[in-house]
Amino acid sequence: MLERGAGNASRNPRRTAATATALLIGVTLTTTMVVGASSTRATAQAGLAANYPTDVIVETYEGIPVSAQQQLASTEGVLAATGLTRATVTGSDGEENQVTGIDPAQALPVLRSADRTMLPEPGQIAVPAWSLDGHGVQVDGTMTLDAGDRSRTFTVVAGTDSMLLLDAVDLQGLVPDAPVQTMWLRLADGIDQNAATDELTDLAGTALSDPFVTGLASERAAMDSVVDVLLLIVTGLLGIAVLIALIGVGNTLALSVVERRQESGLLRALGLTRGQLRGLLAWEAVLVAGVAAVLGTLVGGAYGLAGATSALGQSSETGTVVISIPWLQVAAIVLVATAAGLLASVLPARRAARIPPVAAIAG
């Protein structure tokens, strides 16, 4: 049956190729968008992970009271939290600098990736690698900080963040009343992080003065909303591809039924059942739509990867493009397009099966 269907599909190669090409274009566009959107999402998430150490960051210049810290840390969905102190000190170059104090023991459970944030040890100061020359220091050298009548010298290490980082105890020794101006919060996996972020934002707005809430979760939500729009476009493209399959494959099979009317009647007279005749036409439709769908996903996948690499290569925060192929969605595209071809064969097959063998042979 399959071999016979393949022979029928190749009997009129130009018409079959035209039908398959129309479906191939629709599937190619759909796959290009799916692969491109998936790679865009993965690359953007990698960039967010490079810029934000944890899920939610709450900041305020007036300081976060202990009561507010406890409220934020005990909010439902918050897995771990830590507070960062901040103070203004004078550096070795005589310029004033904002220095942040962090407790590594408390910070580690909060960080999504510990290798993206340099946690200084006691006696060290983490200086952003890009600003070493601006501060007039070098790695393994020393940097002296002054605050009033207090002065301390620290060993310089290359930092991964855009701020000067000290161990919290060291900053407290230099500026005893340094307030907590930042809270890092990690959300539990498997929860609605958008809802949890909104709740934390509302809480911060109530408990703090002019808070600024950001981080992985909020930025990821904004990015996902953009990607979701792209996926809606993909759904529309897939609908167009399905429509093309229904019309194109249906027309091809209808013409095939008319041209092979006598052949179908002869096969029926020789013992071919109506069900077998319908199956023969169904296999023909599945082969045309299936081949077009498979080729479309291959071509569309290549275009999607090439487009993502070209568009995101220079603009991604990490400098590299994360390739992501949504295999389940690609498989769904192939199945939907093939099923559409099968559906398109229903009416022509019923029409062919209803013709009596004698009438079909007579033409």
Rank of each mutant, 00 (worst) to 15 (best):
A87W: 00
A126M: 12
T320R: 13
R278V: 05
V175R: 04
N251S: 15
A22T: 09
A80L: 10
A245K: 06
A349W: 00
G173S: 12
T297P: 02
I240T: 12
T40Y: 12
A188L: 11
T90A: 09
V156Q: 07
T201S: 01
D192T: 00
A196W: 06
L270C: 02
L281Q: 04
V175E: 09
T182W: 15
L145N: 01
V58F: 06
E284K: 01
G271N: 04
T54K: 07
L84G: 11
N194C: 01
R14Y: 13
T297R: 04
Q70T: 14
R14P: 01
W283L: 01
A196D: 06
T182G: 12
V358K: 01
M33E: 04
L111S: 08
V110G: 12
M118R: 12
V175M: 13
E121R: 10
M223I: 14
A306Y: 14
A107I: 10
V27S: 00
S131P: 05
G296Y: 04
I240K: 04
A337Y: 05
A292W: 02
T144D: 11
V321P: 02
V294C: 03
A282N: 02
D55T: 04
P13S: 03
L232D: 10
E219C: 07
V169Y: 14
I57P: 11
S92F: 11
A302N: 06
V249L: 05
A269S: 07
S162E: 14
L166E: 08
M183E: 10
G101P: 10
S113Y: 13
G279T: 08
L48P: 00
G77E: 00
D161K: 08
V358M: 05
R350L: 11
G215W: 00
T214C: 13
V156M: 12
V110W: 09
D177K: 11
Q45L: 13
L119G: 07
D146E: 14
A359T: 11
D177Y: 10
A147T: 08
T21D: 09
S324P: 01
T117E: 14
S310V: 15
R11M: 04
P128W: 03
L238Y: 01
I333M: 05
G91R: 05
V286D: 02
S67M: 07
A188E: 15
R4W: 04
A311T: 12
G5D: 01
T297E: 09
R152V: 11
A217N: 06
T338Q: 04
S39V: 07
A308Y: 02
W130G: 06
A331V: 12
